[in-house]
Each structure stands twice: as C-alpha cells, then as structure tokens.
Write a protein that binds this DNA or RNA. Structure first.
Lengths: 203, 203
DNA sequence: GTCTATAAGCGGATAGAC
DNA sequence: GTCTATCCGCTTATAGAC
C-alpha cells in the first residue's frame, strides 16, 4: 500500500511535466523503482492511474484556498490574503498548476466536472461572497474569475513572460505578483496616489 | 504546393484540439485525403510539420493585434479598442489560442523564443507604451501582462468556468468580457458610479 | 507483489512501383 | 507526388513463474 502512494506521487510530477500521452507506464515504473507490470497490481490501467494521480494531487487543496477566505477581517484584508494565498500556492506547487492547465485543455466534461466540484467549487463560492461584498454593483461571477485570472495567468505564462521586455526576476515572486494584483484590483489602472510596485516604474 | 497548404491548415486544427503526441501522421493524412507517406514529400518529419503548422497559424496575427493599438485616439479609447480586439481574436480563433496554451506548457525555449519574437513582441511593446501613458507610476511590464491576462484567462478557462456558479452564456461573448475587463481596469473593483456589466448585478 | 517473457497493436519513417 | 508494402521500435496489457 506504500507502493501505491509512491506511484501516485511520482506520477503527479511526470504527468504534470510531460502530459498524459508522453508518459509511458515504463517511465512511471522507473520513477518508482519497479517494473511496468507491477503497476497493474495497483491500478487497472493507465487511465485509472492518471485519474487517481490527479485526485491525489488535489487532496486538501480546496480547503487551503477556502480557508484563506475565512479569516474574518475586513473585505479588503480578506482580498489581500486570498490573492497572496493563490499566488503562493500556485508558485510553490507547479505540478498542481500544470495539471490544471492540462485538464482544462484536454479534460472531458466528466473530468472537468470532478475538478470543478472537488477543488474549485468551495473557494469559488467563498470568493463570490467576497466579490458581492466588495462590489455589489458588479457581476460577482465575472469579478471572481477576474481576481483568479490576474494571479494565475501571471504565473501560468511565466515561460513566455520571461522572454518579453521589462521582465525582472522579482516578477516571478508571489509577493510581487500579489502586491501588483491587489493594487490594480483596488484602485484600477491609474491610481492617483499608489506608489510603484517594486521600486521602479519605468524600464 | 496547394497540398502543402491543405496539410498545414488541417494540421493546425488537429494539433490544437488534441496536442502533438495525440495526433498521428495517419490522422493528419486522413484529414487531407491522402496517405501518410505522402506527407513526407512536403515535410521532413512530424516535428518539422508541427513547427511549420504553428508558424502558419500565427501568420499575420501579430499585425492584427499591433494595429489595434495604433488607431490614434485617447489612451482610454485605445485601451478599450485593444481589449475588445484581444477578446474577439481569441474567441473567434480557438485553434491559435489552444496552440499558444500548448506551446506555453510544452514548448522548449527555442520554440517559445520564436513565438515571443514573431507573435507577441510587437503588440507587447505597443501595450507597454500604452501602459506607461495610462499609469506612469505603475510597472509597465506587470500592467501589460495583467491587461492581457484578464481577457485571455476568461476565455482560456471557459470549459471550467461554465461549470461554476453564476455563469451565464453571455459571459462567453467577447463584448461582455471586454466590457467587464475595461471597467475593472479603469475603475478598480469598487467603482462608485459604474453600472452593472450586463444587466444584473447579483446571481 | 514483483518479476520475465510475450502478445497485439500503433507509431514514425522508408523503399520502390506507378 | 502519391501509392502499397513493410520495417522496427515502443506502447499497453496479460500470463505465469517465483
């Protein structure tokens, strides 16, 4: 039974890095230190192994995000805490982040439904409440998506962003991203009084 | 030579939908109405065919986006025009959008460099100028990424967003996304005077 | 539960006729 | 330039010894 967990853990990394079709049962077995046929003692087939890996990767993730919203303070403080939390979680756990990207691209409706219900539903609903509190006159669904979009996209497109002008290493740090996103959300593009975000405005 | 273009056009759709590894040379040949070996009369191998397809998919795309920024009006008007343009382009051309997602996930540095230089560099630089004009005190790189992030992410996560509470079909229309994003960028979360974005605030 | 051996099929790519 | 036929490696999955 410990072997099973070892397989799941190793699988998450490989599937996240290379994608379902590019990872063979031999690759997975090698990563655990066994032979490919031994995998079938723990999982019916490759697809089942993949689905179980994804489930395993997201165990407890929903709670972490949902909890980030429950620390009862002012709405502004909860927003800042939540944005920071998203930025940190997605930066520190690139495997989960990449699995989500891959599932959105390739997942069928059943798989996306499972991901939605088990991972995103709870934090999304909590963010809806926060959104209505912060901006009752806006559409809560669109605003909730926008908040997540700002943080997640900055991280997701990292490989491309690194190549574009003006990039600096600190732009990959979760604290820097969170600061920028919060400021933008709270004040809009042209904040009359808001200072620079990490020291310099130009470049 | 017409066959070559037919191959490229068919390949874009298949690679965008299923990904490189999931599309076989036989699949590609079937889509064009020829046999697999005939593909090798036009392309050295599968990887070359894929790279040419990506190049073909993005012909002229950079110009379209860059031009959206050159219509010399006020900075606010250019922003609105640009956001609308991104939303429309990415909604109407899901193949290119998915190819970009896949390249960001799986592309090596050389391929990302090519994508960056040939597609994103020009519009990114123009947006940098706009960003400095709109918000001289902000970091232009971060703001430029945020503008694109807001629009693109709304569309990219469509399959997941459809399953989350509060979603409505009009949230997939580029005009609706553009309106929401522009309002958010210009006024921030809590716009004191901004009306609802598509008729109703709650739900 | 893990191993070796192996089945059965699909993948990219080539040879050579037309 | 396209075809049929074919090579060969790699894939998933199973059988059966230990």
């Amino acid at each position: 039974m410990d072997t099973r967990n070892a397989i799941l853990t190793a699988s998450i990394s490989l599937f996240a890095r290379d994608g379902y079709a590019q990872v063979s049962m031999r690759d997975l077995a090698n990563a655990v230190g066994i032979r490919a046929p031994a995998l079938y003692n723990h999982f019916k087939d490759k697809e089942t192994l993949y689905l179980e890996s994804v489930r395993h990767a997201f165990r407890g993730k929903a709670d972490a995000l949902a909890q980030a919203l429950s620390s009862g303070a002012s709405a502004h403080e909860r927003l800042e805490h939540y944005v920071s939390c998203i930025a940190t979680v997605f930066t520190d756990d690139p495997d989960s982040r990449r699995l989500i990207q891959r599932e959105i691209l390739d997942g069928n409706e059943a798989r996306l439904r499972a991901l939605s219900d088990q991972v995103f539903l709870a934090p999304f609903c909590n963010t809806l409440v926060l959104a209505k509190e912060l901006a009752p006159e806006r559409n809560a669904h669109l605003l909730t998506v926008s908040i997540a979009a700002l943080v997640v996209h900055h991280i997701d497109i990292g490989p491309l962003r690194r190549l574009l002008p003006g990039h600096r290493p600190e732009h990959e740090e979760p604290a820097c991203i969170a600061r920028h996103v919060c400021s933008l959300l709270l004040h809009g593009i042209s904040s009359a009084q808001k200072p620079n975000e990490q020291g310099v405005s130009g470049t």
